[in-house]
Amino acid sequence: MKSIHTSFVDAVKDIHDGATIMVGGFGLVGIPENLIKALLETGVKDLTIISNNCGVDDWGLGLLLQNKQVKKMISSYVGENKEFERQVLSGELEVELVPQGSLSEKIRAGGAGIPGFYTPAGVGTPIAEGKETKVFNGKEYLLEEGLVADFSLVRAAKGDKMGNLIYNKTAQNFNPMIATAGKVTIAEVEELYEIGELPPDQIHTPSVYVQRLIVGKQEKRIERLTVSE
């Protein structure tokens, strides 16, 4: 059976200095809010974080940046964060930018035991520097390598005590791949169900990928509230 935690700090306390972690979410949607805040409390340092974005100045992964806990970010878009900009320009923070489709596929591949794959994204751009290329049917492709992590932090709308997960709407985003690519995957769920209560044919992340579960209440902050008249 999976370990079901009641303390977020307990759930992340073995994430060690220098660890590589993957964190689900797109913008602030689908981020494991409480697991991120718990890392702020444990004070773990020199993290390499693989996540599509890096939060905003005062929320999400931006909190770990503010607290200088991040050594390197691997992301596709980091444009909403002034502290990020300051740390990169001052050399405190290393950043590796990866095209979003390549990033999601690198994580998928890592979790699926595939060490590398070819993609056209980035050919002829700065992203291609130092990367092997190969021509298939007259078109050039780049070799991108799979990514894995020591720990993966994901958020799901529903989980059961086996570790099966179901995501809500666009809060799914990077979470399913990230769940597969961590040696230890910790899932923050909005609601936890008994085994057998979730319909097996609706599961997004099968239980085998998830090692720890914890229920949390999220703020679900909105980055760009846009409404019709």
Partner: peptide, 11 residues
């Protein structure tokens, strides 16, 4: 400052 390419290179 580099913000990142998002999904443009794939698209």
């Amino acid at each position: 400052m580099i913000k990142g390419m998002g999904g443009a290179m794939d698209l």
